[in-house]
Design a protein around this nucleic acid. Structure first.
Length: 471
RNA sequence: UCCCCUGUAGCUCAAUCGGUAGAGCGAGCGGCUGUUAACCGCUAGGUUGCUGGUUCGAGUCCAGCCGGGGGAGCCA
């Protein structure tokens, strides 16, 4: 039962006896000295495969070893030795090779050892993790997720499991997926509409688009909390930066204002970048070499540079004076478009930028109203922030929340939102309300930022997007 | 949802003005070599996304449908 992980075998001393288990990447044969084969075997425990050296004297050399192809599963007994060849320090001199699982038809194996396009591999999502690139993405994704929990745990933030199914339709962050057990061919009606009273929950239910409103309730008792789970948006967006199902990290801090908020976001991003560069140095070196040249330097630059904090009003000023023709208009009160955000973070500042204090009309009802005249703005602003990073654009969106019941109600009225739908959210402002703030970080966009992967569908194991729900 | 590009061997792509379907990689077999993006030779592999139309003749032109990609919007 006991065997050695390839990660450990590669770090062990020559002379060590071991058994490894894994899958064949490549096999190269030599006729020298009665037969000699070099088999690269990987088991996913690290980026590299280990080289197994199989000699012709093995019992099953002619019958099995020389017939091994990419993806065959094998178990190898042997002793570690300093490699006589270039390219690796140690290798396994095999004393026995047992084939655990053959590839039934190597000619039609969908992921042979050759170059593939990302688009093709996306159609082979169940097999693509066997490639260098997707194995590295999977390990980096894990490292980032583990880093998120460690970061928060070290700072006394509690992980709160907010619900996936939500009965409130007031999250207001986009189109939702309906959850229902009603017979679609025979929908019960009442008063001209669907009678949701007969549905599973006795009311309309949807998949969550954000855990924020729920996590605020726990923030109002535990002080520092976060959620980290899947969220769902039924938007018909077809881009390399959007998914219908994606994971989001949403901390919420009590007794905090907007500056505490971006400080936490900046600290977390830098912590995670440093963490992944250290813990997954092998995979990050691969991304730097094969996916995006200069990736590691770019990330180190982000770690070392303080984020630039920029009021929205000032950002509009910079954009309107920029010597650049934009497709969309730049005007105070309009939301910034991708091209504007990209200009600020990629061309003007060339570093992550925290844009704060947006006009209230382009932001959500729960964001805290700023005092009139903040930043010299010509209109009302709210304590919102977006963090923009080169290459991705918006990676974090957050705000200080409106903790004053009167101001919150005024915003609900302004936006024609029925107060009764928000009864439990309003209760938080009635019973021991405190200033608090939080943000959402798109986990897949963070992985894109860390790996240089161009398409968000390639940093999640099984992407869900419009007309894409295979596997 | 909008704009643009695209669909040919397992994969990546050629195929001139509409005139008999090609290569590389991968795979199989053989050769060579402590090999490592190995190398050399041979072999197999095709309803050109689907349906219809124009034509003596369609991978190529036209229409519809389906799939894939890039950009935009929406956002994280």
């Amino acid at each position: 039962m006991a065997w050695t992980k390839i990660k450990d075998a590669l770090a062990a001393s020559p002379g060590t006896e071991c058994t490894i288990k894994g899958w064949v990447r490549t096999r190269r044969d030599s006729k020298a000295a009665g037969g000699l084969s070099f088999i690269a075997v990987h088991d996913g425990t690290c980026h590299d495969a280990i080289q197994v050296v199989a000699k012709g004297e093995l019992d099953n050399y002619e019958s099995e070893v020389v017939k091994l192809t990419t993806a065959c599963a094998v178990e190898v007994d042997g002793v570690l030795a300093e490699s006589k060849g270039q390219g690796q320090s140690v290798e396994v001199q095999a004393s026995a090779i047992r084939v655990i699982g053959w590839v039934e038809d190597p000619d039609t194996y969908p992921v042979p050892q050759k170059r593939h396009t990302m688009e093709y591999l996306r159609e082979q999502a169940h097999l693509r993790v066997r490639t260098n690139t997707f194995g590295a993405v999977a390990r980096v994704r894990h490292a980032l997720a583990a880093g998120v929990h460690r970061f928060f745990d070290e700072r006394d933030y509690y992980y709160v499991h907010t619900p996936i199914i939500t009965g409130s339709d007031c999250e207001g962050a986009g189109e939702m997926f309906r959850v229902s057990t009603l017979d679609m061919l025979n929908v019960p009606t009442a008063e001209g509409g669907v009678d949701y009273d007969q549905d599973f929950f006795g009311k309309e239910a949807n998949l969550t688009v954000s855990g924020q409103l729920n996590v605020e309730t726990y923030c109002s008792a535990l002080s520092r909390v976060y959620t980290f789970g899947p969220t769902f948006r039924a938007e018909n967006s077809n881009t390399s930066r959007h998914l219908a199902e994606f994971w989001m990290i949403e901390p919420e801090i009590a007794f905090a204002d907007l500056s505490d908020n971006w400080a936490l976001a900046e600290e977390m991003l830098k912590y995670l970048l440093d963490d992944v560069l250290t813990r997954r140095a092998d995979d990050m070196a691969f991304f730097d070499l094969r996916i995006e040249k200069g990736l590691i330097d770019r990330l180190k630059h982000v770690i070392e540079t303080p984020f630039r904090v920029l009021p929205y009003t000032e950002a509009i000023d910079i954009l309107s004076k920029a010597n650049k023709r934009f497709e969309y208009p730049v005007e105070w009160g309009l939301d910034m478009q991708s091209e504007h955000e990209r200009y600020l973070t990629e061309e003007h500042f060339k570093q992550p930028v925290v844009v704060i204090n947006y006009p209230k009309q382009i932001k959500a009802f729960y964001m805290r109203m700023n005092d009139a005249g903040t930043d010299g703005a010509p209109g009302d602003t709210v304590a919102a922030m977006d963090i923009l990073v080169p290459g991705i654009g918006e990676i974090v969106g957050g705000s200080q929340r409106e903790e004053r019941l009167g101001a919150l109600d005024a915003r609900l009225d302004e936006m024609n939102l029925p107060k009764e739908d928000y009864w439990w959210y309003r209760d938080l402002r009635r019973y021991g309300t405190v200033p608090h703030a939080g943000f959402g970080l798109g986990f897949e966009r963070l992985i894109q930022f860390c790996t240089g992967m161009q398409n968000i569908r390639d940093v999640i194991p099984f992407p869900r997007a419009p007309r894409q729900c295979e596997f």
